[in-house]
Amino acid sequence: MSGAARFWWRWLGATAFLLGVVMGVLALNGSTWHFWPLVLLVAFTTAVLALVNVGTVNESPDWTVDSVQALGPAGQDSRLGMYARAISGHLDARVADHTLRDRLADLADRRLRQRHGLALADPAALRLLGEEAFGVLTGPPRRLSRDEIQRCVRRIEEL
């Protein structure tokens, strides 16, 4: 049971107890009283006391911040983790997704620019990458096997 539910059940119990006490005291004195107005008066009184209690009890909010858990082991390159998740997602997907192709194409494009001064769109990139890798990186998205992914990555590394 949550804390709020527990609080209101205790309030209801205290209200019933206080109503019983007030009715007992009035019965012992031989006073005449009306039931429903008495119930409303006791309920109102306990509600006001409950609200005062809620407003004055110092339950400060919890300001602790949960740290983000690393997706990979400590010291692992975040880009490596990103590529590992993209490959895993691609292999687990039921339909062809462009995410892995786009990430590998971006990696190949950066590698071509750094090492050869070429972009992936340049015709000379076909010669450097080979037909299979170039087709995977520039063609429409399709499901790749582990071997195709491995050959593309190896080809990009060899640039």
Rank of each mutant, 00 (worst) to 15 (best):
L129T: 00
T46C: 14
P140R: 14
G117K: 01
A124Q: 15
D147I: 13
Q76H: 01
R94N: 13
R154L: 15
D106F: 11
E158C: 06
A27S: 15
P140W: 02
G24R: 10
L129N: 02
A96I: 06
V42A: 02
R113F: 07
P37D: 00
L40W: 04
E131W: 03
H90S: 03
R146G: 14
S31N: 13
N58F: 09
V21P: 00
I149P: 06
L137H: 04
A14P: 00
V95K: 15
E158K: 10
L107N: 05
V95W: 09
G81S: 13
G20H: 11
L26A: 15
H98C: 04
E131T: 13
R115P: 02
D147V: 14
G117L: 08
A47Y: 06
A93N: 05
L12D: 09
V25R: 14
G75P: 02
R115G: 05
A16K: 08
R111E: 13
A27F: 10
G130W: 02
L104S: 03
A119T: 09
V54R: 14
A47V: 07
L107R: 14
L12G: 10
M23F: 06
A47S: 14
S88C: 00
L12F: 14
L137Y: 03
T99M: 05
G117E: 03
E59K: 11
Q69C: 00
R115V: 12
D62I: 10
A119K: 10
L91G: 04
R155N: 02
L100N: 05
L18C: 13
D122S: 11
E59W: 09
D102C: 01
T64V: 08
L18D: 01
W33I: 03
S88Q: 11
P123W: 04
G24F: 15
L41F: 04
D66E: 15
A133Q: 04
E157T: 08
L51W: 12
L38N: 05
V65A: 13
G30D: 12
V95G: 01
S60W: 10
V136W: 07
T46P: 00
A121L: 01
A84D: 06
E148V: 06
A124S: 12
A84L: 12
R103A: 01
G20D: 07
L112E: 07
F17Y: 14
S88L: 11
M82N: 09
D62E: 12
R101A: 02
A43I: 01
Q150H: 12
N53F: 13
Q69H: 07
V39W: 03
F17D: 12
Q69K: 12
A119Y: 06
V22K: 02
S88I: 04
I156V: 15
R127I: 08
G20S: 12
G24T: 14
D92T: 05
R101F: 04
H90N: 08
L137V: 02
H34D: 15
V57Q: 11
A125V: 00
V136Q: 06
D77S: 13
A108G: 00
H90L: 03
H34F: 07
R94P: 01
P123N: 05
A16I: 14
N29H: 15
P123Q: 07
